[in-house]
Nucleic acid binder design. Structure first.
Lengths: 255, 255
DNA sequence: GAGTGGTCTAGACCACTGA
DNA sequence: CAGTGGTCTAGACCACTCG
């Protein structure tokens, strides 16, 4: 408000030195993110109004606004005119299948049925540990499940989660919970999936995969390997999905 | 500047009626887009400065800025501090393979080799016509080509383009041109690919596809069907790619 | 140093929501 | 009606590029 930021800005911490220039609104974005990460405002809750945050941080409303603009662009928050700004959540209808790019070829309805096949604790293999930035042998939770559309199996998912973050996760817990899996993770374990990277390949169905998905062994399947990240780019899920694409497809938008 | 927009704003045309509210910056965004579409500023060229546009449209710089912000977010323009704002192009190094999501598993180099297999004019089949919003039997240009990485075939592309837009496109033209295909389309035909939708499936290699890609018949391949759009959401390309994914993968980011 | 995009402010008013 | 996000302005100054 008084002295504009030079090189580092007036909000520079005690460790200030030769770091890159960071505008005020970006520093404020970090502060807001920290409060979300530490649970001051939980998924689905409102955050303070732009004017209140502006006063708190001693900047103008426009600066706070620009910070929130970026958070909204990254889907960390959702703005609702007249109501407020809310921490993003996987719970709501509109954002439920935010990460699922599968669509029926005929554009037909949603509402996939879930069938839990397996949930157990195990030790991370080398590649799973690597993907989750754990040490080999660290405890992980392993989940296997099936997604069906109109009784037809469509997706076979294998999921690995860091054991330390998902202590009480059990088959019963998963089976009982009605909403999407990520909503449970948010509510019960405080783990928010913010972003993910996927690697997609075509593979031949192994005998066991073929059985679960009701296709012939060797049939082509889409292999979707997802790494989900939370605050600070920390990986918190590895998921390998096998998709039947005879009546569905993976849709993507390029910009 | 004088009277703020109400319902439709002061830039409302003569046809103003019960349309939805459109803020000033969005109306200006449309005006800028129209000038790009009509070729007043061509791909790679600078557009006028924010202050100049502000004066031209009789609004403040901040309003023009917000319009350009959105255009930049949609990759229609690129901002360069100290230099100006440029119409996006597929010509430059950084944006050459903007739509190609293929990556080598070992993260190795770029530089795919292209091999043109076929280029001829034909009549659109029903499904091609539908995808390109043409009538069945309308003229289209058909292109088949191979992409190779380290002498290994990786992608077999089949491409259909509206015949009316690509009158002089020939095998020779394609073979001579060194840069990316989309750069040629921009420069020679004034067709800019702004956005695309892809549908991805796993399929079994047909005998002929298997031959081109040097895999066994029936081997799993990634099928990538792309519809590319230009201004006004007009489809101007249909592309069916078959990707070998034994040493490469399709990468995607979910937000 | 002139010109461009980028940041920041202070204040006004509009559009939308809900009590 | 008050409170929230959304738009718009006018003006100041900073960061970057290039001649």
């Amino acid at each position: 408000m008084k002295q504009p930021p030079t090189r580092k800005g007036r909000m520079a911490g005690p460790s200030a030195s030769s770091e890159a220039f960071s505008p005020l609104y970006r520093q404020i974005k970090v502060l807001i993110t920290q409060d979300m990460q530490s649970g001051v405002w939980k998924p689905g809750e409102v955050i303070p109004s732009e004017f209140e945050l502006a006063e708190r941080f001693k900047v103008s409303q426009g600066t706070v606004r620009k910070a929130i603009d970026e958070l909204a662009a990254e889907n960390l928050v959702v703005r609702r005119q007249g109501k407020g700004t809310f921490v993003a959540t996987h719970t709501e209808q509109t954002t439920r299948y935010r990460f699922l790019r599968l669509a029926a070829d005929d554009g037909s309805g949603r509402g996939l049925e879930r069938r839990l096949l397996e949930c157990r604790r195990m030790r991370a293999s080398v590649d799973v540990a690597h993907a989750l930035e754990l040490k080999g042998g660290d405890p992980v939770v392993f989940v296997r499940r099936l997604l069906l559309d109109l009784q037809q199996p469509v997706v076979l998912d294998e999921i690995w989660l860091p054991g330390r973050l998902f202590k009480d996760l059990s088959a019963q817990r998963l089976a009982e919970y009605k909403g999407p899996m990520y909503a449970l993770f948010e509510a019960a374990f405080g783990v928010q999936m913010l972003r993910a990277e996927e690697k997609i390949r075509a593979v031949a169905a192994t005998p066991t995969a073929a059985e679960w998905l009701a296709v012939a062994p060797g049939a082509p399947l889409l292999s979707v390997e997802r790494r989900s990240l939370t605050y600070g780019e920390r990986p918190v899920e590895l998921r390998r999905g096998l998709y039947r694409t005879d009546a569905h497809h993976y849709r993507n938008e390029l910009n």
